[in-house]
């Protein structure tokens, strides 16, 4: 079985959107294109477990068929890599479930198999997770309230790159911030295999009060589109994941 190419958007934010389309709706559109939307909500150190603004976080991730997590900024580094990995595993399980359905001819998921067989299937999932190519577009909310968290975000991204590059498969990362000056999103780092050497990428922060999460997600989706158009003739295995 070929692992193909996994595509993810990782949204890092600290509050709810207040402009443009509903982000949960956009996330489900994005997911339809075979791109998983994961969301990490960052809490202020003084905030309690579940403040109002962050309810959207789970909603967006569920509709984006991804994983969400709400954390304090000290835990950001570890969270960014677990969320990315967990979403990978879940996507791959989806692919494998799809294959199982073909083989067994009925609606069977990995979790419904007896434990003995599940082990063997899980080895396949682990193998795919190690070898598949991964593309992550990191979309960072840089509205004013995020200013004191951006250093932690940058550190977490460097660490994510270290974690993912320990795999056998290829990786590509891109970093965008939103809102941009005149457009919904602004490119900070173009598609690259390593983020180890990024430094002070969040220097230009827009301090406006708007958080157009929906439009930003939509725009982020097109950043995959552009690239896959260029690579369409080289990679045929993209279809594998998109089907599932």
């Amino acid at each position: 079985m070929k692992a193909g190419n996994l595509k993810q958007i990782l949204l890092i934010t600290d509050g709810c959107s207040n402009q443009g389309e509903n982000p949960a709706m956009v996330a489900s559109l994005v997911a339809e294109q075979g791109i998983t939307v994961n969301v990490i909500g960052i809490l202020e150190d003084t905030q309690s477990e579940q403040p109002e603004g962050l309810e959207e976080v789970e909603d967006v991730a569920v509709n984006g068929r991804g994983v969400s997590q709400i954390v304090y900024q000290q835990a950001l580094t570890q969270t960014v890599q677990t969320v990315t990995k967990q979403a990978m595993t879940e996507t791959l399980q989806g692919v494998v479930n799809h294959e199982l359905k073909h083989i067994l001819g009925q609606e069977t998921t990995i979790e419904e198999l007896p434990p003995e067989q599940r082990g063997e299937v899980m080895e396949v999932v682990d193998e795919l997770g190690e070898t598949c190519s991964l593309e992550v577009l990191v979309l960072v909310d840089t509205s004013a309230s995020m200013a004191n968290k951006l250093l932690a975000v940058q550190e977490a991204l460097i660490d994510l790159s270290i974690s993912m590059n320990a795999r056998m498969g290829d990786n590509r990362f891109a970093v965008y911030q939103f809102p941009g000056r005149k457009k919904p999103i602004q490119q900070l780092v173009d598609w690259t295999s390593r983020l180890d050497s990024i430094s002070s990428i969040f220097s230009k922060i827009s301090s406006g009060g708007i958080t157009p999460t929906g439009p930003a997600l939509k725009e982020a989706m097109y950043q995959f589109g552009k690239k896959s158009l260029r690579r369409r003739f080289r990679k045929d295995d993209l279809s594998n994941i998109e089907e599932a």
Binding site: Q86, T89, I110, R118, G119, V125
Partner: peptide, 14 residues
């Protein structure tokens, strides 16, 4: 809550 992770661990223990 993550069945996949439990299954991976079982594989190792086996």
């Amino acid at each position: 809550i993550q069945s996949a992770a439990i299954t991976s661990e079982v594989n190792v223990l086996k």
